[in-house]
Design a protein around this nucleic acid. Sequence first.
DNA 1: GACTAGGACGTGC
DNA 2: GCACGTCCTAGTC
Length: 339
Amino acid sequence: MASPVRVHPDAALHQSAHSALSFSENSLAVLKTEDGAVETLELVDNKPRLDSTDRTLPGLYLSCFDMLFTEDATWLVRVADSSASVASGPNPEPCPEPEQCPVIDSPGLGSEPLSPGLEDQVEERSLEQVQSLVVGEVLKDIETACKLLNITPDPVEWSCGNVQKWLLWTEHLYRLPQVGKAFQDLDGKDLCAMTEEDFRQRCSQCGDTLYAHLDIWKSAAWMKERCSIGESRLMEREELWSEADSSCSGQPIHLWQFLRELLLKPHNYGRCIRWLNKEKGIFKIEDSAHVARLWGLRKNRPAMNYDKLSRSIRQYYKKGIIRKPDVSQRLVYQFVHPV
DNA sequence: GACTAGGACGTGC
DNA sequence: GCACGTCCTAGTC
């Protein structure tokens, strides 16, 4: 995928807000997640080098990026350097979660030096692989949010209700103040037509952050429209859609389907719900309040809580969809028919 | 206090 | 009628 992805700098920094520590001179970004793990990432932009102040201006073009929509609601931005592959980056620390850290198949790494021409080809191929992977990740994350919120990926198509859902979602994920009222009666077209300044005027506290988030969605929609998606990616995405469900077929989603969706995205939701034994369909709700909030968001039930959610789960006992495992534990349930 | 279990009733589709 | 959502009581951890 050759198209550069336009990323608003606020998106790169604000998305992980509290987490971006620094950009060093050699474009090394050190991002810190909420749980304290530090990831060292390579980044470079293809544009002439900007000084630190320029980098805060809108419209910075990054050659490649990878936003990981983590379970603790942090977007981690990864950017590939054209002079170093991800796999051979300067950070010797192993990636704690392989799922979040795709291994790039880069022939020649760690072996004998390649001729300059061949090296360039390898680099180019590695870059393409990185770009393809990271862009795919962004699209997948947005698709996940779309499925959970039951909205389309393209903000332009959003209704006023969709805009409010997206706002609620974003506020919730990034712990922003509630600003839904400031954007009342705006549909997706209105929202996309707004400038960053408009956002700031409506919401001085976090208008720029919201604008940055929207910018990512817009960029993803733009890419989706223009970039031809490789066959394998297409198949992968079709699998994703077929995984679940209902949210794409217009049918109301069932709680058990929603729970399965969350379980199928461990890198996003592993902190609030996870498999204990996937083969047997046994899962544990790690953060009952959070899962309930997500379910409430999905069903547009702000008053949802774990009491109510668990009551619904218990209704599944009779129906033979979910049961308590043989050895009953708190917050642990089992799908009667595992995936 | 948080979780579990289940009855009863209401609501939207 | 179905699939919850809401409220409730009672018991357990």
